[in-house]
Nucleic acid binder design. Structure first.
Lengths: 204, 204
DNA sequence: GTCTATACTGAGATAGAC
DNA sequence: GTCTATCTCAGTATAGAC
């Protein structure tokens, strides 16, 4: 089908080259469809990108919710920060095994604030659920501080999803961790960050 | 001077709208210079971007090195992770006071892997110095794990520099921290992450 | 309903006149 | 050094074939 051919090809090219660097003409050439078909099915390049993401994001979010359900059940109530982080992060890595390019793309879009826009428009329930779970796992921490820590988390996650650990290269080393190991290190790193005591400051 | 007018205007527009969304035509219109002048002085849009960044990055890196020097002197040798993080992160926020748009731009470019490329090409000495300082502050931690934690750090920093804490908005709250407070929370959060014990794993 | 051919506008790049 | 003119290619839009 024409529509799916466009979606598949766009997903691959967007992830490999970036959205701006990919022209609609390249997409339709590789998908062997006509240029105007894009406009017919999606109206614009931006709307095509939305469709590409939404197609997969729905599944990721279902998995996130299911994991959080399980963790809360196992804990008999509120899940620990580690578990909440894992429920949010792990599903993206699970996708990575089967669709590495898509995950790269998600990383890029997270970093551009695009991802949260989509989440807010289409998955506000997931957003609310995880905000609540974070809050329950850290009931002592004030919302303002908690939200900043979530903000830092999104940044670290997005950057890691994007792939290419340039720091290793800059240090003259090859990264040796498996994707699962990276995900684990990330969760441990972030959980420790969440558990850090909030510094008392006198603002001047 | 024509060249500086182009640099100033490009910096402002790149930061406000993003690089791709900013056309050279818009830059030359606002700078009141001719379109071809950009190609005469900079050869391409990409090279113009390099020039915009390098103009300010040099100063930031000098400040980073100076801070690290001071912290190591004060500690009588190796600085703590907190101090190393502060030496790396604080100078970017110091710039933010005077050039908020430029910092937004740096955040964007960090997230795109562009920043590390520039650092590697023009400031490998700064890179080496900080890698060494991180290593000295965490001598027990293996390089592989340490570099990943630095990778997470860059992600969190880049995302935070980019401004716009969308998470707060998604949660229906207004962020109330001052920039200094955000920088502090970030350093505390990351330092705790660095200090997290490395999980022992049996890879399967 | 689907899809194609084709045209329109605006982008970055370049050559050459002054 | 600076600017005009022009080239190519991008995203978008529309009319109409099947």
């Amino acid at each position: 089908m024409t529509k799916d051919k466009i979606l598949d090809t766009a997903e691959r090219l967007f992830a490999d080259q970036g959205v701006d660097a990919t022209s609609l003409r390249q997409i339709v050439a590789e998908a062997r469809v006509n240029l105007a078909a894009v406009h017919y099915y999606f109206r614009s390049k931006e709307a095509l990108l939305d469709a590409v993401i939404l197609r997969k994001l729905a599944a990721v979010n279902r998995e996130r919710m299911a994991l959080l359900d399980r963790f809360e059940r196992e804990a008999g109530g509120r899940a620990s920060v580690e578990r909440v982080l894992e429920a949010f992060i792990a599903p993206t890595w699970a996708v990575k095994d089967r669709h590495p390019q898509f995950v790269k793309l998600m990383g890029r879009l997270h970093a551009e604030g695009f991802m949260l826009r989509l989440m807010k428009e289409h998955f506000q329930d997931v957003l609310d659920r995880f905000l609540e779970a974070f809050h329950c796992s850290m009931p002592e921490t004030e919302w303002e501080e908690l939200l900043w820590r979530i903000h830092f988390t999104v940044g670290a996650m997005a950057h890691t999803l994007r792939g290419a650990p340039e720091v290793h290269v800059a240090a003259g080393r090859k990264p040796g961790y498996s994707p699962q190991r990276v995900s684990q290190s990330l969760v441990d790193f972030l959980a420790a960050g969440f558990r850090a005591p909030v510094r008392v400051v006198e603002e001047k």
